[in-house]
Amino acid sequence: MYGYIIRRLMLAVPVLIGVSILVFAIIRFIPGDPARAIAGVHASPEYIEQVRKELLLDEGLHVQYFVYMTNLLQGDMGRSTFTRRPVTVELAQRFPNTMILAVTAMGIAAVIGMSAGIVSATRRYSLFDNVSMLAALVGVAAPVFWLGVMFQILFSVNLGWLPSGGIGTWKHLILPALTLGLATAALIARITRSSMLEVLGQDYITTARSKGLVERVVIYKHAFKNALIPVVTVMGLQFGTLLGGAVLTETVFSWPGIGRLMVDSILTRDYPVVQGAVLLLAVFFVMINLVVDVIYAFLDPRINYGSKEVE
């Protein structure tokens, strides 16, 4: 088991190095003169030269990457060309906000998705099952940014119940988290339903029922626990997708997180911040996948830890 975890950790190292190369390449592959692109259209030749020197653009790519990595490992991601503050400071301020949003969204998704999935599976083909599965289909297809705007129109503009954007109280969190969580809720509902249906068809459920156990115990203690493995796995993996969705949700609700910072930075051509934000999200995504794989290995005893490629 520990061997598997170490092997899985080792596999993550080349991926992380690859991610760093790709992020490093963002600035270098900009068509034309990267220094001019970063400095801006109206920048003076002196400033363009200063940017060129800061990024070592006159050196070879391997030298640039080596310096970039050395700085990165020391926690130096450069300075924002827009605010002139260190990128790490910008990221550190925004990252907790993104985490709060993503974790709350996942909580909402888990509660709505699992509840709908369990009820749908136990009342198969009922009105609730049909309606909730239709809602799940729509939930997966609805663009997250459109859902957000619709919620703003309904709950902020028309009903005046919740703020339409910004950060501050728990009320500011509800709409963005609900928006971000609904697509994941839809997916969790579909997976919980199919997983529950599979488990409910097993012999040991029939045995549990024939022992005279009450239905609630059969459903929650016997079926749900076993149906949970694929659901938990998907939840973990969806967390990365949530981070992608957070880019859009944060923009809709003016939520000061990493996603919005990244989009603002792309539009202002603040490439060091773009690099930092992309790197942070990607590294976090890799870590989440790593943790999910390890948890999955713990949860599912059928996984063969001895095999070379357990992915």
Partner: peptide
């Protein structure tokens, strides 16, 4: 390692 839309954003940033 990049969530899909993030990878698309990265490519658009460059192109």
């Amino acid at each position: 390692a990049f969530p899909g839309i993030l990878l698309a954003i990265v490519v658009v940033t460059v192109l």
